[in-house]
Nucleic acid binder design. Structure first.
Length: 486
RNA sequence: GGUGCCUUGGCCGAGUGGUUAGGCAGAGGUCUGCAAAACCUCCUACGUUGGUUCGAUUCCGACAGGCACCUCCA
């Protein structure tokens, strides 16, 4: 099925087609590994995951998905330095080797990041590569040399800067983000004295080493520029190395449009002569209870925080997929609860589809239309809320026990395929829970059953209340009762 | 100051120039000794204000409110 995506570059929804054959090459801006990822980060990665799954399942493409890991920046340097309060014993021992500290520190948070996204149903085997910035330094240096050679960058006190004004003579700067150069930064404080830039618009490609910072050797035409890469250059170099230019889709959060992605476009074109991609896709932000998530407001949550509150990560996945990636998502605890119930309604339906003991007379005729409606919604800019609405309407109109055998089989095929995208359900028959019920609970249940037989309902209700207070739910059946853990 | 996005019923969240989104919660009902679960039914909104129109939540303008980016924050 034809996939349509909103392209930030053209601000319109466009039909998508891979540049080469049936392979989609996709690059996603990944995390900076200086801390545990928060749920706002998670939304960006879930969006990229959704996109690649829709491309595979509905677009029927092969997807080559690359997500970078930024392990060298101000924060990773700061927090891995000796005396850091963030250092913990699981990272190993700090030494006086700054590079060694940096790598130990970032490896720890990289590992925690991979654990977190795995819990959210992002499958590591779906990535074709997760490159770390520190492993592509030579490629970045090569790109910087090219840009200097093309006279779009200059060296100042050992750092290299991209000359925006020079570049504007050759190409547009402000493709993703409309920039009014007259009023640009008029109301903004500029930390100009931090670097020796010629113009406030210029951005850094390479930073000269400072005391206490790890660095890589770099000599440009006899000038010693030992130091480390700027933030934007890593993506430009790694995507070229791992995907080739131009590739098909670049994803990231809206906040990265400027300056990160804008600078990435300029750098790549100034150095390699090509823009990274023609398709830029950005996800909107997440708010918590209608407010920006921030530590000072006390509404800042990492995935680990939520799991400590006994929230199932798959409910977070489903809740986030219930909103369109292009609109602000309002995270609330009530919303997660609601999402969990909605998710289990579909899960129960899938369980029921496995139950062969009852059969009805609804034929499989309507399966084709639910597939078409749901997939069309997903194919049109990943419209998950609409797709889910179709699914709920379908299960409301077609109870599982009223489908005939063929319809049930086809419905099951549909949900199996759908779960290749959502990945929040189990495609299996309802597991028979081997519950270990404490004997005192069973005793109470037996006593209650007897009380019921004796029509002593007061006693029966007292016993039921005790069972509920002990954390179990008792349901009466014709023959007796069942006990479930709450 | 510049740039962009948003404002839908108790909550979340689609969409449309006139006709049902969907989910959660809530109400009533069937069932049950009563419950629980399940199933059935119901609850009809579109920030304010002008304009266009036979008719606007939907188009245009203004206003109000919220959010984001311009600070190596997804």
């Amino acid at each position: 099925m034809q996939i349509y995506l909103y392209n930030s570059l053209t601000k319109t929804i466009e039909p998508f087609k891979p540049l080469k054959g049936n392979i989609v090459r996709m690059y996603s801006c990944g995390p900076t590994v200086y801390n545990y990822a928060h749920i706002g980060n998670m939304r960006a990665f879930l969006f990229a995951d959704l996109l690649q799954r829709v491309l595979k399942t509905i677009g029927e493409f092969d997807v080559k998905w690359v997500m970078n890991i930024t392990n060298i920046d101000d924060k990773t340097i700061r927090d891995s330095a000796p005396g850091s309060s963030v250092w913990n014993s699981e990272m190993g021992n700090q030494t006086d080797n700054l590079m060694d500290n940096l790598l130990k520190f970032t490896r720890y948070f990289e590992k925690s990041f991979l654990e977190d996204i795995s819990k959210l149903g992002i499958r590591l085997e779906h990535f074709s590569a997760m490159p770390k910035a520190t492993e592509f330094i030579p490629q970045m240096q090569e790109l910087i040399r090219k840009i200097i050679k093309n006279e779009i960058a200059y060296i100042s006190e050992g750092s290299v800067y991209f000359n925006v004004n020079e570049w504007r003579k050759k190409d547009k700067y402000g493709k993703l983000y409309k920039i009014d150069f007259e009023n640009f930064r008029a109301g903004v404080r500029i930390d100009a004295d931090q670097y020796e830039r010629e113009d406030a618009n210029d951005f850094v490609l390479w930073k000269f080493k400072k005391p206490g910072e790890p660095y890589w050797e770099f000599e440009i035409d006899g000038v010693i520029c030992d130091g480390r890469p700027g933030w934007h250059i890593e993506c430009s170099a790694m995507e070229k190395e791992l995907l080739g230019l131009p590739f098909d889709i670049h994803t990231g959060g809206v906040d990265l449009k400027f300056p990160h992605h804008e600078d990435e476009i300029a750098q790549s074109k100034a150095g390699y002569g090509v823009e990274p991609t023609a398709f830029w896709c950005h996800n909107e932000f997440l708010e918590v209870e209608g407010q920006k998530m921030s530590k000072s407001l006390g509404n800042y949550f990492t995935l680990r925080d939520l799991m400590n509150r006994a929230i199932d990560p798959l409910d977070i996945r489903f809740a986030m997929l219930s909103a369109h990636y292009g609109s602000t998502y309002n995270f609330t605890f009530e919303g997660i609860k609601s999402a969990r119930k909605a998710r289990f309604r579909i899960q129960d339906y899938i369980y029921d589809l496995h139950d062969n003991s009852v059969t009805g007379n609804i034929s499989s005729d309507m399966i084709a239309s639910i597939i078409d409606e749901t997939y069309s919604a997903l194919a049109t800019d990943l419209h998950t809320p609409k797709a889910l609405a179709f699914v709920f309407t379908f299960i409301n109109d077609n109870p599982a026990n009223k489908l005939n055998d063929e319809a049930r089989r086809k419905a099951l095929e549909f949900f199996t395929d759908l779960n290749n995208i959502f990945d929040v359900w189990k495609i299996e028959s309802k597991p028979i829970e081997e519950l270990i019920i404490p004997s005192e609970i069973i005793d109470m249940a037996e006593q209650r059953l007897q009380a019921k037989k004796d029509r002593n309902y007061v006693e029966a209700d007292v016993l039921r209340q005790k069972i509920i207070e002990a954390g179990y739910t008792i349901k009466d059946t014709k023959e007796g009762y069942t006990i479930e853990q709450k």
